[in-house]
């Protein structure tokens, strides 16, 4: 195993930052192993994303805009990644640690007889052996796990853990043939995108302002949190209690069963700090909490906890941040 293959997940050519993080890291690992760095892009919009990937230090970008990819649930994707891995030769396959990425990765474990490093935040390469660093048990443990020597291995990559460094090295875009003789079983009948366009992706935001049950309803997410998030140049997130109540979409949920975020600043508003929430945000740079209850568990892992009413504090804070921004501009 000396090549590195990146599975570039996307929707109609739109991808997340983690794809470019993987494209950057792939080169570093491939160089350490003395192999090639490759990427695979399949489905509608592939050509457009392949163009963007050319700005990264890859050798080859395999492409196929096969319409079946968006019609059937991951069956074609798994076939394509397997085919690309065979074309690339023995390789480490990097897959984003997203809901869909985890499914693809699991299936390839069996297809390729591969080992897997899950939710990887760093790689060490020594004497040709790749070890993966991953937080486990909700971040209570940091494990280092070696991938035993084999033709193929898989790693799911935590978004925001690796840096992005574009550098065009003349990657070749190469069509990859549709794997023959495959049947697909699970048909996608409808596909609804709930992410509001124009809003920053939660996992990529440098600042996250998250709200919980303490906000009491859907409106404060728009009237209270959004203005503060915009003033700070960040995105809005939520606890599961807020998502369960239907106040915000589940795509905003942070925690064990939602997204893991690592912004430089996390502002928790009306969130108690349950362990399942903590594991999704504990690695943030600075944590600030606003909570009526000084004894809420979130105080234990916040850098600053202000005991008070969110409804009156947040608008004033927003004003202060906005006027500081104006001052900086003028």
């Amino acid at each position: 195993m000396n090549n590195v293959l990146v599975y570039a997940e996307h929707r109609g050519g739109q991808t997340r930052k983690v794809t470019f993080e993987m494209a950057t890291e792939a080169r570093r690992i491939a160089d350490a192993l003395g192999g090639k760095a490759l990427a695979l892009v399949v489905g509608a919009g592939s050509a457009q994303l392949a163009e963007q990937l050319k700005n990264y230090p890859l050798d080859t970008i395999y492409v196929n805009d096969d319409a079946d990819v968006d019609k059937f649930l991951l069956d074609p994707v798994v076939d394509y990644v397997e085919a690309a891995a065979k074309a690339a030769g023995p390789s480490l396959i990097l897959i984003p640690n997203t809901l869909a990425g985890r499914d693809v990765a699991g299936r390839l474990v069996a297809r390729l007889g591969a080992g897997i490093g899950a939710d990887v935040t760093d790689f060490h390469i020594e004497n040709g052996v790749v070890t993966c660093v991953s937080p486990k048990m909700g971040g209570a443990l940091i494990t280092t796990c070696a991938l035993k020597n084999a033709d193929y291995a898989i790693a799911t990559i935590r978004p925001n853990a690796f840096s992005v460094a574009p550098s065009a090295t003349g990657a070749q875009v190469q069509p990859i043939e549709k794997p023959a003789g495959k049947t697909y079983s699970a048909v996608i009948e409808s596909d609804v995108d709930e992410e509001s366009s124009g809003e920053m992706a939660l996992e990529e935001a440098a600042v996250v302002v998250a709200g919980g049950r303490g906000l009491g309803g859907p409106e404060p997410f728009d009237t209270l949190l959004k203005p503060l998030a915009h003033a700070l140049g960040g995105a809005v997130g939520a606890s599961r209690a807020a998502a369960d109540a239907g106040w915000v979409s589940y795509s905003l949920q942070i925690g064990q069963t939602g997204k893991t975020v690592t912004p430089s600043l996390y502002v928790a508003v009306g969130i108690s700090g349950a362990i399942q929430h903590k594991v999704g945000m504990r690695a943030s740079g600075t944590i600030v909490a606003i909570n009526k209850d000084g004894a809420a568990p979130i105080a234990e892992f916040s850098d600053l906890m202000v005991v008070g009413d969110a409804f009156s504090i947040v608008p004033e804070l927003t004003k202060l941040v906005e006027s500081a921004k104006k001052e900086a501009v003028s």
Binding site: I287, D303, M305, G308, S312, E316, K319
Partner: peptide, 16 residues
């Protein structure tokens, strides 16, 4: 970190 009780919203906003 620090946990602070504030007299009113203005004090809270300024503290943050």
């Amino acid at each position: 970190g620090k946990t602070i009780e504030v007299a009113d919203a203005t004090a809270g906003a300024h503290a943050i």
